[in-house]
């Protein structure tokens, strides 16, 4: 068995190769125009990838459940509903659409608020079985999804076209001004996030053991849930929802590294996440010639992987 440090180096090298390929392969239409564009996209993918990886691993540690992610619980649907309501009620020429900052701010606040209400409702002191949580999350997600569809059906078709573009994750038209705000928020979150890695290790022993070892458990759980909601909200508002990415990368990291150490798990998951996004985007550009989008590919593979994990879990339980 390889040592975890070696594994991390291997992943880092693959991630680097993906990034170099993405930045330099078959560059057309003038280097000075295309290259900065590509770097921007690359930067967006690195931010999104690491944010989703951290958020998912931390979230799964405090919920002690490797199938739940903030996205699966419906944060993504909340993004869709906010955008749809804005288009539905105010139209595409409203200030909430035109001003990227305002749209970004409103989306993030709505998603974090939604997440907190959901957690309050679901993670009260009395323990719910895992599958009830999962089911509740799915049902709320579906309910929001249906509301979204309902509004989209009766919306003006031209408005719908413009809305649709917002609801698919896309790295092709990342707005530079949002990129820097997002990077700032994610950097701030990581400043705190990297300081609590050892606490996350202890918390993976469960509530009783963590309290015994001097962790203010309930306070930490709340903080980490807020932290991961903010991270997911920022990355969703920046590029759009990539529901299953977090689930894939966290579970691949658990499988590949087989350790409890969050420093290793989170760096590993971030690298896998960058490989998936950058490598995936490379394929979309140069193999599929933009006939599909990255979120479709990731949600397709992620959905299959999710079903596989569910089947594996239920077999273990049964």
């Amino acid at each position: 068995m390889r040592k975890n440090s070696t594994k991390l180096i291997i992943l880092a090298v693959i991630a680097l190769i993906c990034m170099l390929l993405f930045a330099f392969y078959n560059i057309q239409g003038g280097f000075s125009y295309a290259f900065p564009k590509r770097l921007e996209r690359l930067f967006a993918m690195v931010i999104t990838g690491t944010a989703i990886a951290y958020a998912t691993v931390a979230f799964q540690t405090v919920t002690r459940n490797r199938l739940l992610t903030p996205s699966v619980m419906g944060i993504d649907s909340m993004y869709e509903i906010v955008q749809t309501i804005i288009y539905f009620a105010l139209g595409s020429s409203s200030i909430f659409v035109v001003s990227r900052y305002l749209n970004f701010g409103v989306s993030i606040i709505a998603m974090v608020l939604f997440a907190l209400i959901l957690y309050r409702f679901l993670f009260r002191a009395d323990k719910h079985p895992i599958f009830l949580l999962l089911l509740a999350g799915m049902i709320i997600g579906t309910l929001l999804g249906s509301l979204v569809t309902f509004m989209q059906v009766i919306i003006d078709p031209v408005e719908y076209e413009s809305l649709q573009a917002r609801l698919f994750a896309s790295f092709m038209n990342v707005k530079t001004e949002l990129l820097f705000i997002s990077a700032g928020i994610v950097a701030l979150a990581f400043l705190y996030g990297t300081r609590i890695l050892h606490k996350l290790d202890v918390m993976s022993l469960g509530r009783d053991n963590a309290i015994n070892l001097g962790i203010s458990y309930d306070k930490m759980v709340l903080r980490i849930l807020i932290l991961s909601s903010v991270l997911i909200a920022v990355s969703t508002a920046l590029v759009g929802p990539i529901t299953f990415l977090g689930l894939i990368v966290s579970n691949l990291a658990y499988q590949y590294f087989a350790t409890y150490k969050h420093s290793v798990l989170i760096i590993g998951a971030s690298l896998i996440s960058i490989i998936a996004l950058v490598g995936g985007q490379f394929l979309v550009l140069h193999v599929f010639n933009l006939t599909t989008t990255i979120s479709v590919i990731i949600n397709f593979i992620g959905g299959l992987y999710f079903i596989y994990l569910l089947l594996k879990e239920s077999r273990k339980a049964g």
Binding site: R66, L197, H198, S204, L205, D208, N209, N212, A258, Y260
Partner: peptide, 30 residues
Amino acid sequence: AILKQANHLNIRLTVRELVSFGRYPYSKGR
């Protein structure tokens, strides 16, 4: 220190790694 009766872990640890966690209040992980 408190030890409860149900100690199901969903992470894989060696004996030494588990016992090392006992030093967390002092070492904070290092």
